[in-house]
């Protein structure tokens, strides 16, 4: 069922969710902001993935006073992500699967998360959600919408989503022409949201890639880690100390990146000392090992690892270099 909603759709939904106790956040070009009503269309995709809203880091996990260790209760305020893109919504479903193996920094937030997904009529040149099977129309979430003129076409995806629509009085079915327009937009967007060679269709070549292939793929990589910090599924974190006095302070968790030199370094040796090894770790984990670990891909096709890379590397370029030989 697709419903038609007027220009005040976001106002109504957001007000309702807030009165139900949700903290409501929407993405923008500059990050995620708490919103109380209508907001303009976010970028495709927004530069900051939702994991950074669900867990802002550094985040305190332990208070230390001398040799007293105090547990810090994680923030469990229910969050509603409004305008989250389909790829990012799917990424949180992936993190839900990862949480079944071991908790992630966002696990406690996922249990009462509400997602109102903004579908993508205009994928970016680096989007490949159609290859990844995560978009450009919403695959997961509670409610999906697409902006159409002044109004919105709205699809409930869960019972919770449907109940929300009913509670804000949206019950007008979209007219047939609107449905045709919607299908047309989704079809066109799906054609655009593909990349050749598709990162998702070359697992065998990636598995067989040589050191020289990874050297070629990483020749422009600075090892800055922008790819994994902006990746919506990367879950790695570091734990660091904070000091508030001579014997007082605590421990914080911080989102981390396997691209950094120190990430795997031990006193005895560093198994991934060279940049090709670190880029390989990132790409192989997302596209190959993730499936073996969690039964699902680790790459949703948002393209951020390439679009936000200062040197245009990321998964798209790396896979292209590896498979071109």
């Amino acid at each position: 069922m697709i419903y038609y909603a007027g220009p005040d759709f976001l106002d109504r939904v957001i007000r309702r969710l807030r009165s139900d106790g949700y903290a409501t956040y929407a993405p923008s070009e500059w990050g995620w902001f708490e919103v109380e009503g209508h907001f303009s269309e976010p970028p495709t995709p927004p530069p900051v993935p939702p994991k950074h809203v669900l867990r802002k880091t550094p985040s305190l996990v332990l208070r230390v006073k001398g040799t007293r260790f105090e547990y810090v209760e994680p923030d469990r305020t229910p969050v509603a992500l409004i305008g989250i893109r389909p790829c990012d919504a799917f990424a949180l479903e992936i993190l839900r699967k990862v949480s079944m193996f071991s908790p992630t920094l966002v696990t406690e937030k996922l249990s009462n998360l509400f997602m109102v997904v903004e579908e993508c009529p205009n994928p970016s040149p680096t989007c490949f959600c159609a290859d990844a099977g995560t978009g450009p129309d919403a695959r997961v979430g509670d409610l999906a919408y697409m902006r159409l003129g002044d109004g919105f076409l709205v699809r409930p995806l869960t019972e919770r989503g449907k109940a929300l629509l009913v509670s804000v009085g949206i019950d007008e079915l979209a007219p047939k022409e609107a449905l045709e327009t919607y299908n047309d937009i989704v079809n066109k967007a799906t054609k655009r949201a593909r990349i050749e060679p598709s990162p998702h269709h070359h697992a065998d070549e990636l598995k067989e890639a040589t050191w020289e292939d990874w050297e070629r793929a990483s020749r422009n990589c600075a090892g800055c880690g922008s790819c994994s910090i902006s990746c919506p599924t990367c879950f790695c974190f570091d734990i660091r100390e904070v000091h508030e006095g001579p014997d007082e302070g605590g421990r914080v968790v911080v989102w981390d990146t396997c691209l950094s030199l120190y990430f795997a370094a031990m006193a005895s040796h560093n198994p991934r000392e060279k940049i090709p090894a670190r880029l390989r770790q990132f790409v192989m984990h997302k596209l190959v090992w993730w499936r073996e670990q969690f039964g699902i891909t680790g790459c949703v096709g948002c393209g951020r690892c390439t679009s936000l890379c200062p040197f245009n590397v990321g998964i798209i370029t790396a896979v292209k270099e590896v498979v071109k030989k």
């Binding site: 193996f101 071991s102 908790p103 992630t104 920094l105 879950f235 790695c236 974190f237 570091d238 734990i239 981390d256 396997c258 990430f263 795997a264 370094a265 031990m266 005895s268 198994p271 770790q281 192989m284 984990h285 090992w289 073996e292 670990q293």
Partner: peptide
């Protein structure tokens, strides 16, 4: 095997080798 670890229970991702924690 020795690997750098932060959490010890499969969450921080530090000690991964291929699909292995």
């Amino acid at each position: 095997l020795e690997r750098k670890m932060r959490c010890g229970f499969g969450s921080c991702g530090y000690c991964q080798i291929g699909p292995i924690f």
